[in-house]
Protein backbone atom coordinates (compact mmCIF):
# COMPACT_ATOMS: atom_id res chain seq x y z
CA UNK A 1 0.00 0.00 0.00
CA UNK A 2 1.27 3.44 -0.94
CA UNK A 3 1.95 5.89 1.86
CA UNK A 4 0.27 8.77 0.09
CA UNK A 5 -2.17 8.95 -2.79
CA UNK A 6 -3.57 12.22 -4.16
CA UNK A 7 -6.47 12.08 -6.56
CA UNK A 8 -7.54 15.18 -8.50
CA UNK A 9 -6.59 17.49 -5.63
CA UNK A 10 -7.63 21.09 -6.16
CA UNK A 11 -7.12 24.06 -3.91
CA UNK A 12 -8.70 27.41 -4.59
CA UNK A 13 -8.04 30.48 -2.44
CA UNK A 14 -10.78 33.07 -2.26
CA UNK A 15 -9.37 36.58 -2.21
CA UNK A 16 -12.42 38.79 -1.96
CA UNK A 17 -14.42 38.14 -5.12
CA UNK A 18 -11.44 36.66 -6.95
CA UNK A 19 -10.79 32.91 -6.90
CA UNK A 20 -7.12 31.99 -7.11
CA UNK A 21 -6.48 28.34 -8.00
CA UNK A 22 -3.28 27.11 -6.31
CA UNK A 23 -3.60 23.41 -7.17
CA UNK A 24 -5.40 22.29 -10.31
CA UNK A 25 -6.17 18.60 -10.05
CA UNK A 26 -2.93 17.12 -8.73
CA UNK A 27 -2.50 13.34 -9.07
CA UNK A 28 0.37 11.90 -7.04
CA UNK A 29 1.47 8.65 -5.39
CA UNK A 30 4.29 8.61 -2.82
CA UNK A 31 5.65 5.26 -1.64
CA UNK A 32 7.14 4.53 1.79
CA UNK A 33 10.80 5.49 2.14
CA UNK A 34 10.94 7.85 -0.84
CA UNK A 35 13.14 10.94 -0.81
CA UNK A 36 11.21 13.25 -3.06
CA UNK A 37 11.49 16.89 -3.99
CA UNK A 38 8.80 19.12 -5.36
CA UNK A 39 10.32 21.96 -7.31
CA UNK A 40 9.11 24.80 -9.39
CA UNK A 41 9.08 28.59 -9.53
CA UNK A 42 7.58 30.79 -6.84
CA UNK A 43 3.79 30.65 -6.86
CA UNK A 44 3.69 27.26 -8.55
CA UNK A 45 1.84 25.72 -5.58
CA UNK A 46 4.68 23.84 -3.81
CA UNK A 47 3.88 25.12 -0.32
CA UNK A 48 0.14 24.66 -0.84
CA UNK A 49 0.73 21.06 -1.92
CA UNK A 50 2.84 20.36 1.17
CA UNK A 51 0.27 22.04 3.43
CA UNK A 52 -2.55 19.97 2.00
CA UNK A 53 -0.53 16.74 2.31
CA UNK A 54 0.53 17.71 5.83
CA UNK A 55 -3.08 18.17 7.00
CA UNK A 56 -2.44 21.86 7.70
CA UNK A 57 -4.87 22.87 4.99
CA UNK A 58 -7.86 21.17 3.38
CA UNK A 59 -8.20 20.71 -0.36
CA UNK A 60 -11.14 22.39 -2.07
CA UNK A 61 -11.74 19.22 -4.06
CA UNK A 62 -10.23 15.76 -4.47
CA UNK A 63 -9.11 12.88 -2.28
CA UNK A 64 -5.98 12.40 -0.20
CA UNK A 65 -5.24 8.89 1.06
CA UNK A 66 -2.69 8.69 3.86
CA UNK A 67 -1.82 5.11 4.78
CA UNK A 68 -5.00 4.09 3.00
CA UNK A 69 -7.43 6.47 4.74
CA UNK A 70 -9.01 9.44 3.01
CA UNK A 71 -8.07 12.44 5.12
CA UNK A 72 -9.38 15.17 2.80
CA UNK A 73 -12.64 15.71 4.66
CA UNK A 74 -11.57 14.98 8.22
CA UNK A 75 -12.35 17.35 11.10
CA UNK A 76 -9.45 19.54 12.27
CA UNK A 77 -9.17 17.61 15.55
CA UNK A 78 -8.49 14.36 13.66
CA UNK A 79 -6.10 16.17 11.34
CA UNK A 80 -4.20 17.42 14.41
CA UNK A 81 -4.04 13.84 15.67
CA UNK A 82 -2.59 12.64 12.34
CA UNK A 83 0.02 15.42 12.40
CA UNK A 84 0.89 14.67 16.01
CA UNK A 85 1.57 10.99 15.39
CA UNK A 86 2.54 10.61 11.74
CA UNK A 87 3.91 13.79 10.20
CA UNK A 88 7.05 15.79 10.92
CA UNK A 89 7.61 19.30 9.60
CA UNK A 90 10.74 21.23 8.74
CA UNK A 91 10.21 24.91 7.93
CA UNK A 92 12.32 27.39 6.05
CA UNK A 93 12.60 29.66 9.10
CA UNK A 94 13.24 26.74 11.53
CA UNK A 95 10.39 27.83 13.87
CA UNK A 96 12.21 26.73 17.01
CA UNK A 97 10.96 27.92 20.38
CA UNK A 98 13.56 30.49 21.48
CA UNK A 99 13.18 29.91 25.25
CA UNK A 100 13.89 26.19 24.94
CA UNK A 101 17.28 24.54 24.45
CA UNK A 102 18.09 22.34 21.44
CA UNK A 103 17.32 19.31 23.61
CA UNK A 104 14.00 20.75 24.82
CA UNK A 105 12.92 21.78 21.32
CA UNK A 106 13.38 18.19 20.14
CA UNK A 107 11.88 16.81 23.34
CA UNK A 108 8.75 18.93 22.81
CA UNK A 109 7.76 16.95 19.70
CA UNK A 110 7.87 13.63 21.51
CA UNK A 111 6.52 14.86 24.87
CA UNK A 112 3.16 15.59 23.30
CA UNK A 113 2.81 11.92 22.41
CA UNK A 114 1.32 9.84 25.18
CA UNK A 115 2.63 6.59 26.61
CA UNK A 116 6.35 7.09 26.08
CA UNK A 117 8.49 6.79 29.19
CA UNK A 118 10.83 9.59 30.26
CA UNK A 119 13.77 7.26 29.83
CA UNK A 120 12.76 6.40 26.28
CA UNK A 121 12.20 10.09 25.49
CA UNK A 122 15.65 11.00 26.76
CA UNK A 123 17.26 8.16 24.82
CA UNK A 124 15.52 9.09 21.58
CA UNK A 125 16.23 12.82 21.87
CA UNK A 126 19.95 12.29 22.53
CA UNK A 127 20.16 9.72 19.71
CA UNK A 128 18.46 12.07 17.26
CA UNK A 129 20.66 15.01 18.20
CA UNK A 130 23.67 12.78 17.77
CA UNK A 131 22.45 11.62 14.35
CA UNK A 132 22.13 15.21 13.12
CA UNK A 133 25.58 16.01 14.51
CA UNK A 134 24.58 18.17 17.44
CA UNK A 135 26.04 16.15 20.30
CA UNK A 136 27.50 18.54 22.86
CA UNK A 137 25.18 21.37 21.81
CA UNK A 138 22.08 20.02 23.55
CA UNK A 139 21.89 22.85 26.08
CA UNK A 140 22.25 25.67 23.62
CA UNK A 141 19.31 27.90 22.91
CA UNK A 142 18.41 28.74 19.28
CA UNK A 143 20.10 32.15 19.50
CA UNK A 144 23.36 30.34 20.34
CA UNK A 145 23.19 28.15 17.22
CA UNK A 146 24.07 28.87 13.58
CA UNK A 147 21.42 28.68 10.85
CA UNK A 148 22.55 25.21 9.82
CA UNK A 149 22.54 24.00 13.42
CA UNK A 150 19.05 25.39 13.95
CA UNK A 151 17.80 23.54 10.88
CA UNK A 152 19.42 20.34 12.19
CA UNK A 153 17.51 20.81 15.44
CA UNK A 154 14.34 21.23 13.37
CA UNK A 155 15.14 18.02 11.46
CA UNK A 156 15.79 16.17 14.72
CA UNK A 157 12.51 17.54 16.07
CA UNK A 158 10.61 16.34 13.01
CA UNK A 159 12.11 12.84 13.22
CA UNK A 160 12.20 12.13 16.92
CA UNK A 161 8.63 10.89 17.07
CA UNK A 162 9.36 8.42 14.24
CA UNK A 163 6.80 9.83 11.80
CA UNK A 164 5.73 8.10 8.62
CA UNK A 165 6.29 11.25 6.60
CA UNK A 166 8.51 14.34 6.91
CA UNK A 167 7.51 17.43 4.98
CA UNK A 168 10.15 20.11 4.51
CA UNK A 169 9.20 23.42 2.96
CA UNK A 170 12.31 24.95 1.37
CA UNK A 171 14.54 23.68 4.18
CA UNK A 172 17.70 25.22 2.73
CA UNK A 173 16.32 28.56 1.59
CA UNK A 174 17.76 30.49 4.54
CA UNK A 175 21.13 28.71 4.45
CA UNK A 176 24.30 29.25 2.41
CA UNK A 177 24.95 26.61 -0.23
CA UNK A 178 27.53 24.67 1.82
CA UNK A 179 25.32 24.54 4.90
CA UNK A 180 22.31 23.77 2.72
CA UNK A 181 24.13 20.77 1.26
CA UNK A 182 25.07 19.56 4.74
CA UNK A 183 21.46 19.77 5.86
CA UNK A 184 20.30 17.85 2.80
CA UNK A 185 22.91 15.18 3.38
CA UNK A 186 21.62 14.77 6.91
CA UNK A 187 18.06 14.46 5.65
CA UNK A 188 19.21 11.88 3.15
CA UNK A 189 21.09 9.96 5.85
CA UNK A 190 17.98 9.94 8.01
CA UNK A 191 16.00 8.66 5.04
CA UNK A 192 18.51 5.88 4.52
CA UNK A 193 18.89 5.01 8.17
CA UNK A 194 15.35 5.38 9.50
CA UNK A 195 13.51 4.63 6.26
CA UNK A 196 11.41 7.74 6.81
CA UNK A 197 9.66 9.18 3.77
CA UNK A 198 10.78 12.72 2.93
CA UNK A 199 8.94 15.16 0.74
CA UNK A 200 10.54 18.56 0.40
CA UNK A 201 10.01 21.60 -1.75
CA UNK A 202 12.71 23.75 -3.29
CA UNK A 203 13.45 25.94 -6.25
CA UNK A 204 17.21 25.49 -5.93
CA UNK A 205 18.56 23.23 -8.76
CA UNK A 206 21.51 22.13 -6.60
CA UNK A 207 19.21 20.84 -3.91
CA UNK A 208 17.13 18.92 -6.43
CA UNK A 209 20.12 16.77 -7.29
CA UNK A 210 19.86 15.08 -3.90
CA UNK A 211 16.37 13.74 -4.54
CA UNK A 212 15.62 10.23 -5.75
CA UNK A 213 12.47 11.56 -7.27
CA UNK A 214 11.84 15.01 -8.68
CA UNK A 215 8.36 16.37 -9.19
CA UNK A 216 8.00 19.61 -11.09
CA UNK A 217 5.02 21.80 -10.34
CA UNK A 218 3.93 24.64 -12.60
CA UNK A 219 0.78 26.73 -12.14
CA UNK A 220 -0.63 24.19 -9.71
CA UNK A 221 -0.13 21.17 -11.94
CA UNK A 222 2.50 18.42 -12.03
CA UNK A 223 4.38 18.82 -15.29
CA UNK A 224 7.25 16.37 -14.69
CA UNK A 225 7.83 13.35 -12.40
CA UNK A 226 11.33 11.79 -12.63
CA UNK A 227 12.86 8.95 -10.62
CA UNK A 228 16.42 7.68 -10.39
CA UNK A 229 17.62 4.55 -8.71
CA UNK A 230 21.15 5.42 -7.62
CA UNK A 231 22.44 8.50 -5.85
CA UNK A 232 26.11 9.38 -5.59
CA UNK A 233 25.82 12.56 -3.55
CA UNK A 234 27.95 11.16 -0.72
CA UNK A 235 30.91 10.64 -3.00
Amino acid sequence: MSLLVLKNVKKIYHQGVINVPALKGVELIVEKGEFTTVFGPSGSGKTTLLNVIGCLDKPTEGEIYFTGDNIADLDKRYLAEIRRKNIGFVFQSYNLIPVLTAYENVEFAIKILKNISSREIKKRVFKMLELVGLQGLENRKPNELSGGQKQRVAIARSLVKKPKLVLADEPTANLDSKTGEDVLKIMLEMNEELKTTFLFSTHDPLVMDYAQRKIELKDGQITRDERREELDVFN
Binding site: A80, R84, I87, F89, F91, I97
Partner: peptide
Amino acid sequence: EIGMMKAMGL
Protein backbone atom coordinates in the same frame (compact mmCIF):
# COMPACT_ATOMS: atom_id res chain seq x y z
CA GLU B 1 5.52 29.33 17.12
CA ILE B 2 1.78 28.86 17.49
CA GLY B 3 1.64 27.71 13.87
CA MET B 4 4.52 25.33 14.47
CA MET B 5 2.83 23.93 17.58
CA LYS B 6 -0.32 23.33 15.59
CA ALA B 7 1.71 21.69 12.83
CA MET B 8 3.24 19.40 15.44
CA GLY B 9 -0.27 18.37 16.37
CA LEU B 10 -0.88 20.35 19.54
